[in-house]
Simulated assay, not measured.
Amino acid sequence: MRVLAAMSGGVDSAVAAARAVDAGHDVVGVHLALSRMPGTLRTGSRGCCTIEDSMDARRVCDALGIPFYVWDFSERFKEDVVDNFIDEYSQGRTPNPCMRCNEKIKFAALLEKAVALGFDAVCTGHYAKVIEDAEGNRELHRAADWAKDQSYVLGVLTHEQLKHSMFPLAETPTKAEVRAEAEERGFSVAKKPDSHDICFIPDGNTRGWLEERIDLEEGDIKDTSGEVLGTHRGARAFTVGQRKGLSIGRPAADGKPRFVLEIRPKTNEVVVGPKEMLAVDEIRGIRESWAGLPISEIQAFDASDPGLGDSSASFDVMAQVRAHADPVPATAHVNIGEVDGETAREIVIRLGEPLKGVAPGQTVVLYQGTRVLGQATINRAYSLSRPDVVS
């Protein structure tokens, strides 16, 4: 096969490309330039798209004896990931830029270009597994190493995209083994730190970064009874579950810390309360997609030409709301209802165990066993037993 290896400049993509070469594929390496003003050097494990990263990727390709190119995707990245991140926060939601990058850049823009150029697959260093069922349909599954499993951030992949996806690290027991293999191959990236946090905010100060890009106005901080406790510099820079940065100035009556329970962008208010009020047992998601063919309950529902008020059959899942969070048992169904004043599909997920700090804008990924069924963007999350917070 002709394989395009996406080379980030890190150890995982380096070893993934090497294994694709070892498997006998015709491999070409490509590094994605996602910033118009890349830094010269990384700062430890922060930052991305630096000149150092592209040079590291080139050195690996030279060692493997494969061609290497740099493709400029900076405009697409700005529009689909960075601008989306700003827009979501401006509407009081908490987005996941890694999900958008995988969806819009690595497995949309990159894959589209690769297929157009005659490549059969895109190879990445993600820890996830693609398995074919008895009919040859591809399914996305967790990697062998659950500690490094990245199937959550790949939950946005579609049936067509999985046909052209290759993850050579799927069966690797540990990250230590990947580093040891890189060292044996003589790759300079063998001990390079893993990247973390938001790549386009290398100093990690998300609030400060947003304050330069979103119009923030002072507003009220309220408790669950509606009492005004203080003021904030802009509701849109907060996220549900946040504890730091409230600056209320006086403790709660019970002396316990307060957490952000709700963000109201229309009234520019932040509602706070005790940690236990963060617990939710129902999530409603919009803009769902299915990783591989949808399960039978969804296929049957779609074939019925559903209308307003219709629901699919319920199905058992494990629901995960963060990349490294533990999944919890749940039941789910798809419903056609009123969402933000319009008729739309939503996934209704009833959790078997409560989750805390679930924010609109985050992504919920659904599993059955190790298989990724699909994902949706969280629109609402609440406790069915808790009275509504006073407006």
Rank of each mutant, 00 (worst) to 15 (best):
G241S: 07
I201N: 06
I248S: 10
E212F: 06
D220I: 00
E217T: 13
R236S: 02
H232P: 00
W290V: 01
P274K: 09
A235R: 01
L210K: 06
A253F: 10
L246N: 08
V228C: 01
T206M: 12
D203G: 08
D215K: 08
R236W: 00
G226S: 11
L246C: 09
D305T: 11
R250W: 12
D310Y: 05
L278V: 07
G208Y: 13
I248H: 09
A237F: 03
D281I: 09
R250F: 15
V228Y: 00
E227A: 12
I221G: 01
R264P: 00
D305V: 12
A279I: 01
D220L: 00
E217Y: 11
E218V: 12
G219Y: 06
D223K: 08
G249N: 11
T224D: 06
A300N: 15
F259H: 09
I283H: 05
A237Y: 00
R213E: 13
V228D: 01
I201K: 04
K275R: 14
K275C: 07
D223C: 05
D220E: 14
V270L: 04
L261G: 00
G204P: 09
G245D: 11
F238S: 01
D281T: 10
D254F: 08
I221A: 02
R284N: 11
G285H: 03
H232R: 08
S304F: 11
G230A: 15
A235N: 06
V228L: 01
L216Y: 06
D302N: 13
G226P: 10
K244S: 15
V270S: 02
E276Y: 13
D254S: 12
S247K: 13
T224R: 14
G245P: 07
P294L: 04
D310R: 04
N205T: 03
R236M: 14
R213Y: 14
I201C: 06
G219L: 09
N268H: 08
E262D: 14
K244T: 15
I221N: 02
G309F: 03
E218K: 15
D203V: 13
E282Q: 15
P294K: 03
E297S: 09
G249L: 11
F238A: 05
E218N: 13
E227F: 00
V228G: 02
K256D: 12
E288V: 08
E218R: 12
G219D: 07
I248K: 08
G208A: 14
R258N: 06
R243C: 09
T267L: 10
F238N: 05
Q299I: 14
S225L: 07
D310K: 06
G307H: 13
L261M: 07
I214L: 15
R284W: 05
F259N: 01
E217F: 08
S289H: 03
T231E: 15
P274M: 09
K275I: 10
R213A: 14
E269M: 02
I263F: 00
Q242Y: 03
E211T: 06
G241H: 07
G249K: 10
I283K: 04
A237P: 04
R233K: 15
V240W: 00
G234E: 02
I298L: 10
R213C: 14
W290E: 05
Q242K: 03
K266G: 01
F259S: 03
H232C: 03
R207K: 14
I295S: 04
L216D: 05
D220G: 02
D302V: 13
P265E: 06
K256W: 04
